[in-house]
Design a protein around this nucleic acid. Structure first.
Lengths: 351, 351
DNA sequence: GTGAAAGCGCTAACAC
DNA sequence: GTGTTAGCGCTTTCAC
């Protein structure tokens, strides 16, 4: 049986109406749901719909005020495991709440970011979720503030996930997780094992997430009365390659350390490989810890001690609060907790 | 300076027109681009636009025939590294080609899948890309064929990525990569090292991707004149946990093998930790290989020998061909090559 | 119950 | 150059 010969490409509600011998309104009504329509007409209409394989144009519905709402998720690069986790949470929750989910990758370009947000505003997205840390500059605040305002004035809402909050009064929701606290706990755990010289493989020095983790590293030292050696905190970015390079350099320079804490698990993965390449054994020769608890962390060898961040939950939460809010609500600030998960990559210092 | 007091939420082109003291068409024209408008009016209009922070409703534009086209990408779970890679490719290429990109996760549920496709058809998506293998059943073909037809008849197009092609004549584009060939080459590489009993950690036995890889495993054996032992091919799924479990069971059952080939890198990762947990060393005690060449493969220890699949390229290609096709073109079939990348997890068999 | 008409926000053809 | 009108595909009064 050949499936329909006419070109449904331009099949409109009127075409269906014509075929069923009724008016467009009637078609709309039977499709719409529970409006009283005689059984006979309903059947005829449904048959026409089926025969023509008709689906109402979602854009037209939207413009008529009955569309499926949309939610936008803009991130740097879906390829990063923690971003992917969040995206998953966002996507699940969005569809659970009956929303369509647009995702855009900015590739870290701020210009792309504002372009995307503008597009989403044009799409009349119910909310746009921005994720991924960055530098907390005046320029950032101004730009982001502007996005927040225009979204808000369009009845939408901006959600900042793991990125610098704006000043007070901005119509945004910010959801963060505790970078400093997590790093503090993690580093404390390392220090307790007797390590005194722990190398920190950090991120970009103006990146707020990196800063938070670095602060935790520092604070944990000071809490135990040890002043961290300046040459032990290195800066790169959050990639695997950065960890690999930094670690190799540290080894070449014969820096003196017995443990290393990486700003992310990716960095830790690179560092681990560098360590292995240098013939060092973890944790026998040196202890290693990461941050994020991406799924792969436990398949590293040794399984990585790290800090768990509830990324997926973060994503879900982001959409839930975004969609639950009244548009012009002022700022709201959620802080999710993190906790260290102890595996095998950190061992007590043996003299 | 306070940003605009009126509620732009319902700010329409007519509002802008009123404020600028012109007609809506004029506003449309200055916004539209290059239509001749006097400098004076243009300025006035632009000022009004700025003051009201106006953006044209993309849905309304779309319905009027000048919208940003949309492209849909539906996958099982963005959290899988290879999916993420493809998504990245798709997303980049889509935005490069001026398309918006919708992504939906089906969580492996076929019902969700058809629902999403229906939605995308309603959205008048220019194309929908379906990725992720599955069982090649009659039900699958029928269902998918139906989706392809209705998409085609709506002027859109279905692209199948790494999943079973339909019969001939279906209006779909299918892009695959060479599972069998890759597995063949990989297993040949293992056999050449002297291994005779190589364990295969496969996927679901009705999953076409898994089947392809298994066929390659088998073929490589036969090509060397060795009949693979039946008890050495195990079935699970493509997750890390599956690899872990299967490996542990194989060890418990004291299966006799000197190398293991996993159907995916994730499976290999799980298997690797199971091996480590059992106190075995790779590749000294047993060799191990994966498939996919996800970024993490080289940070496993030892770095994983695997088959490279150009996932990101696959994604880009998918959108390029999808968008480049005329709607009702019959089937087209692209096969991307794969190649094995030799790292450290496979070693020659020592007697 | 059902149809005609108005309206959603926009663009485009057609005046002037 | 610019305004008026019609029309995109749909929903929703408002009549009958």
């Amino acid at each position: 049986m050949t499936r329909k010969s006419e070109d449904a490409s331009r099949s409109t509600i009127r075409d269906v109406a014509a075929r069923a011998g009724v008016s467009a309104s009637t078609v709309s009504r039977v499709l719409g749901g529970v409006y009283p329509v005689s059984a006979a007409t309903r059947t005829r209409v449904m048959r026409a719909v089926r025969e023509m394989d008709y689906v109402a144009d979602a854009r037209a519905k939207a413009i008529a005020g009955v569309g499926t709402p949309t939610l936008a998720f803009v991130l740097e690069d879906i390829t990063g495991p923690s971003f992917a986790l969040m995206a998953h949470g966002v996507e699940r929750e969005a569809t659970r709440l009956g929303h369509l989910c647009l995702v855009c990758s900015t590739e870290g370009d701020a210009r792309h970011e504002v372009e995307f947000v503008e597009m989403m505003r044009a799409q009349r997205a119910a909310a746009v979720i921005l994720v991924g840390g960055g530098a907390d500059t005046a320029e950032y605040r101004e730009r982001t503030r502007r996005m927040a305002d225009s979204l808000a004035s369009a009845g939408s809402r901006l959600v900042l996930c793991g990125r610098p909050p704006l000043g007070p009064g901005a119509p945004v929701t910010v959801i963060e997780y505790d970078n400093e606290g997590g790093a503090y706990a993690l580093v404390a755990h390392v220090l307790v094992q007797g390590h005194q010289r722990v190398l920190f493989l950090g991120g970009k020095s103006d990146h707020t997430t990196a800063q938070g983790r670095e602060r935790g590293y520092l604070a944990a030292h000071r809490a135990r009365g040890v002043e961290p050696a300046e040459e032990l905190v290195l800066h790169g970015d959050f990639t695997r390659d950065s960890g690999h390079r930094l670690m190799r350099e540290a080894l070449e320079q014969k820096l003196d350390f017995t443990a290393v804490v990486a700003a992310t698990d990716m960095v830790a993965a690179g560092a681990l490989t560098a360590l292995h390449e240098a013939g060092l054994s973890v944790p026998r020769d040196v202890s290693l810890a990461g941050y994020d608890d991406i799924p792969f962390a436990r398949d590293l060898h040794p399984a990585l001690t790290t800090v768990h961040v509830p990324y997926e939950e973060l994503g879900r939460l982001a959409v839930r609060t975004a969609l639950g809010r009244e548009p012009n609500t002022p700022d709201e600030h959620l802080l999710l907790g993190t906790h260290v998960v102890v595996r095998d990559s950190v061992a007590p210092l043996k003299e």
